[in-house]
């Protein structure tokens, strides 16, 4: 297998006495979708924030495309993007204005064509001129996803990207992700509490519990390792232990 696009080595994050992430290591390969599972407080979001350079690790290393995040932040973040159901975008700007700002921030060429393209893919045409504060939560999620896809990242971090979407749109988003994965070799780190979605989407899954990585493998391997019938049972078992 080719060398990983993301490599995390013994990553630790402490806030005072509390250890949010406790020595996790994992890799993400080109074109791979890696699912990150874990109960609330397991360290998923803190890990994602460290991968985005928003939180400094206490120790350990994060490298992407062979470069260390701490010393090559600008070059790495140019090729990375993220989306979260819980994130927000400037509320007084229209969908299109928001996307223009993102495009400028990343210095994209041929902006209008790219915006038209993503607006069409995510079926945002009917609200592209609406201000963000007037969007429904599902439309806001699509805007957040559009922002992430617009910059044509090589790695995409998605934090529960389909949590507020209706099943039809959620299905289309998953299809789009798979298309991008196949067409451009997009690598994705994906968190979700929807176990079926996790099984459907992820090539591999890592399971975090109390800041530690407790399991890694395909969905089938993890289910078999914990002697459960499906991923949801594994989740319940580990969540109740923590």
């Amino acid at each position: 297998m080719s060398s990983p696009v993301l490599e995390v080595r013994t990553l630790i994050k402490r806030f005072g006495d509390f250890t949010a992430v406790n020595g996790i290591s994992f890799v993400l390969h080109p074109g791979e979708i890696l699912g990150v599972l874990g109960p609330n407080g397991a360290g998923k979001t803190t890990t994602m924030h460290m991968l985005l350079g928003l939180i400094t690790p206490t120790s350990g290393t994060i490298s992407m495309f062979g470069m260390d995040l701490e010393t090559h932040r600008e070059a790495i973040l140019q090729q990375v993007n993220f989306s979260s159901t819980y994130m927000s975008m400037p509320q007084s700007l229209t969908v299109e204005e928001n996307l223009w700002v993102v495009a400028r921030l990343y210095g994209l060429p041929d902006v209008q064509r790219k915006i038209d393209n993503i607006v069409s893919k995510l079926e945002m045409g009917e609200f592209r001129h609406k201000v963000a504060r007037k969007l429904s939560s599902g439309q806001m999620t699509r805007l957040a996803l559009a922002k992430a896809f617009l910059t044509e990242p090589k790695i995409l971090f998605l934090d529960e990207p389909t949590a507020s979407l209706d099943p039809d749109i959620a299905h289309k988003i998953r299809a789009l992700l798979k298309d991008e994965q196949q067409a451009s070799g997009l690598s994705v780190l994906y968190t979700s509490h929807n176990m079926r979605e996790m099984e459907e989407m992820s090539d591999r899954i890592i399971f975090l519990q109390k800041g530690k990585l407790v399991a890694e493998g395909t969905a089938a391997q993890i289910v078999s390792r914990f002697g459960q019938t499906d991923l949801e049972d594994v989740f319940l078992k580990l969540a109740r232990e923590s």
């Binding site: 932040r73 993007n81 994130m87 927000s88 400037p90 993102v102």
Partner: peptide, 18 residues
């Protein structure tokens, strides 16, 4: 404050913006 009110700081500082 505008960035803070719109909870946009994360978007900005997870981008290449210095």
């Amino acid at each position: 404050l505008e960035e803070l009110w719109s909870r946009n700081l994360m978007n900005l500082f997870a981008s290449p913006l210095k």
